[in-house]
């Protein structure tokens, strides 16, 4: 049994009558450094409260965001009492002493888990499509600016920016839009012909806004044209200057042509190849060959072509039963051999 002598070597502990409120956030190694040394801004983002209603609502959560990464916050109950202490000079029973004073108690802590989902999932929910049907624009205003949109998505600004660029989304009069494949094909045609008309070399450096304003004269919003130009630019391009990337343009023109063919009718491969070439700048016309878009198309017959479905659920209704019947035949074969 211990003696009371040790008692006097220790530091007195006191508990404050009024607790302060703190939260304890567990920091993974990759965050510790960022938090300790860098001045990069951190923020905690959550889905706006309104989005927690409705049938398609996402589970509400908050995320700690660095400029490029996001970490989902998960609250964990602690079974023990966890006190936050601070040294204090206190007077008890007319004697002053330095104490370790517990002035906050935490019943829960927060864990961080990397959040790598695609910001496009949120954008598809929040940003309406911008379609052009027979020359008329078909869309609606969501009154969500790009900045507000990013704040409403519990992912880092870097992740949001990446998805925004991949969608060629754009902001116009305080609303955000994502163009359809059909719209993008039309705007691309306008960009291509404006570049030809003005003698702009698109594979060399050109001013993004100069070309975008030429396209605006054709009736397309300049921010949309600028978004598409950036979408197709080489990796090193900044916001002011662009130069288009051959591989990006080749793949973009082909896949948007295929995606825009939504009516389900057959797209003859020969017709597609002609349309693809016609929509490419002259200097890349010769590069329009199917192996340039490997993995992005499928050939339902020897003469037709269609976009390869990413999910496998939307347009792959036809091949699935075929596979199913094939496997069923296998079972039948096995069954037959067993019976024998």
């Amino acid at each position: 049994m211990a003696t009371r002598q040790q008692h006097h070597n220790g530091a007195p502990v006191s508990i404050a009558h009024q607790f302060q409120h703190f939260r304890l956030l567990e920091l993974p190694p990759e965050i510790v450094d960022l938090v300790e040394n860098s001045k990069s801004p951190l923020s905690i983002k959550s889905l706006p409260p309104s989005s927690s209603d409705g049938p398609n609502s996402q589970p509400a959560y908050a995320a700690l965001c660095t400029p490029t990464k996001a970490f989902q916050l998960r609250q964990v109950q602690t079974s023990n009492s966890l006190y936050v202490t601070q040294p204090a000079l206190e007077t008890h029973n007319d004697a002053s002493a330095f104490t370790t004073r517990a002035f906050a108690s935490c019943t829960t802590t927060l864990e961080l888990h990397p959040q790598t989902e695609d910001a496009a999932i949120h954008m598809n929910r929040l940003v309406p499509t911008y379609d052009i049907v027979d020359g008329d624009v078909d869309t609606r205003e969501n009154h969500i600016s790009k900045a507000r949109l990013f704040a409403d998505i519990p992912l880092s600004d870097g992740q949001c920016e990446e998805a925004w660029g991949a969608l060629a989304a754009f902001e116009l009069s305080g609303s955000s839009y994502q163009p359809t494949a059909n719209t993008l094909t039309q705007v691309w045609k306008a960009i291509n012909s404006a570049a030809v008309a003005e003698g702009i070399k698109i594979d060399a450096s050109f001013l993004t806004n100069d070309l975008a304003s030429l396209v605006a004269e054709e009736g397309h919003p300049a921010p949309l044209a600028a978004a598409l130009i950036r979408h197709l630019s080489t990796a090193g391009s900044d916001s002011e200057w662009s130069s288009l990337d051959r591989d990006k343009v080749l793949s973009f023109v082909a896949t948007k042509l295929l995606e825009a063919k939504k009516d389900g009718s057959d797209y003859l491969t020969a017709d597609f190849l002609d349309a693809w070439k016609d929509n490419l700048p002259e200097l890349w016309r010769k590069d329009a060959e199917l192996n340039a878009i490997q993995g992005k198309y499928e050939l339902p017959s020897s003469k037709t072509i269609r976009a390869k479905s990413n999910t496998g659920a939307v347009t792959s209704a036809q091949p699935d039963p075929a596979k199913g019947s094939a496997s069923r035949k296998w079972h039948e074969k096995f069954a037959k051999t067993r019976k024998k």
Binding site: H7, H8, G10, A11, P12, V13, S14, I15, A16, H17, Q18, L24, T78, S79, N80, S81, L82, Y83, V84, T85, A88, E90, H92, T99, T100, R101, A102
Partner: peptide, 25 residues
């Protein structure tokens, strides 16, 4: 940080001017 299994109970201090109570060492 100080973690304890359980909770520390202490009597309501008689002196209203004190902002804390000594509970141990």
């Amino acid at each position: 940080l100080l973690e304890i299994q359980g909770t520390i109970h202490f009597p309501i201090p008689p002196d209203p001017s004190s902002s804390s109570t000594l509970v141990g060492t």
